[in-house]
Design a protein around this nucleic acid. Structure first.
Length: 238
DNA sequence: TTAGGGTTAG
C-alpha cells in the first residue's frame, strides 16, 4: 500500500493491529499504533480494543488497564466491547475482584452487559472450578446456547452429575436452536453419565436439525465408546 | 461501506 502511495487509514491499521494482537504479537501491534499516531491517523475505540485484547490474552492486565485509562483520558467513549475485552483479560488472570468491579463500573455508566459479556464471566468462573457459583450468580439471566454449552461443558469436566441434569433440563426447556458445539458438549455429557443410547440418538438426530457432525463429534463418540470398552460401536460410527 | 468481545476432543 505504502509503495503504491496509498495512505493506510484507521481501518487498515486496525485490521493489522488486530491481526498481530490475535497472533500474540501485541508488541508489534503497539508498534503500529505508534506509527498511526506519528502519521496523524487517529485510532478509535476499535483500535484500542484490539490492543487491549492482545494484552489480555498474554496476561498483561496492567498494560491493558494503563491503555484503558489513556483511552478514557483522550476522551474516547468506551463501550461494551472494550469492557468485555478487559473482563476477559481479568478472567485470564483469575482476578475476579477486578471482573466484578468492571461489571459495576459498566452498570454505573449505564452500559448494559449483553449475554456475550456474561458468558465471558461465566466461563472464567468455571475455568477456576467455580461452576456452580457461576450457575447461581447468573440464574436469573436469559442464557443463550453458549451459556448453556459452557456450563454443561464444565459440569461434565467436574463430574457434577446433578449439574449436568440441571443444565440439560434448562437447555431443553429454553428451546434454543442447537449448534454443533452444543451437540458435541451434550453428547460428551451424556456419555459421562452413562446415557449411551441418548448420546447416540442425539448424534443421529443432528442431520434433522440441519447440523453435520464434525471431527470433534466423531472423536467424542469414539472416545466415549472406547472408554466403556465398546470398540465395535466406536468402529461402526466411524 | 472495510475493523473489535464468549463455548467444543485428546
Amino acid at each position: 500500500m505504502v509503495e503504491r502511495g496509498i495512505k493506510p487509514d484507521t481501518f487498515s491499521y486496525t485490521i493489522l493491529i488486530d491481526g498481530f494482537s490475535k497472533q500474540g504479537n501485541v508488541e508489534k501491534a503497539v508498534g503500529f499504533l505508534k506509527n498511526m499516531l506519528k502519521g496523524g491517523v487517529l485510532p478509535n475505540v476499535v483500535t484500542y480494543t484490539a490492543i487491549i485484547s492482545g494484552f489480555g490474552k498474554k496476561g498483561k492486565l496492567e498494560e491493558a488497564f494503563t491503555l484503558f485509562k489513556e483511552v478514557k483520558n483522550i476522551g474516547i467513549e468506551v463501550d461494551e466491547f472494550m469492557y468485555a475485552t478487559l473482563i476477559h483479560g481479568a478472567c485470564v488472570k483469575r482476578d475476579f475482584d477486578c471482573v466484578f468491579h468492571l461489571l459495576d463500573e459498566m452498570e454505573n455508566k449505564g452500559i448494559k452487559p449483553s449475554i456475550v459479556t456474561y458468558n465471558i464471566v461465566i466461563n472464567g468462573l468455571c475455568k477456576v472450578g467455580r461452576t456452580s457459583e457461576a450457575d447461581n450468580i447468573f440464574k436469573q439471566l436469559d442464557g443463550d446456547i453458549v451459556t448453556y454449552s459452557t456450563l454443561l461443558h464444565w459440569y461434565t469436566e467436574e463430574g457434577n452429575v446433578e449439574g449436568i441434569f440441571e443444565i440439560k433440563g434448562k437447555l431443553e426447556e429454553a428451546g434454543l436452536c442447537m449448534d454443533v458445539v452444543a451437540c458435541n458438549i451434550l453428547i460428551k455429557a451424556l456419555f459421562s453419565i452413562g446415557a449411551f443410547e441418548d448420546a447416540r440418538a442425539l448424534y443421529q438426530a443432528m442431520p434433522g436439525m440441519g447440523l453435520s457432525a464434525d471431527s470433534v463429534t466423531y472423536c467424542t463418540i469414539i472416545d466415549g465408546y472406547c472408554k466403556i470398552g465398546k470398540i465395535e460401536e466406536a468402529l461402526e460410527e466411524g
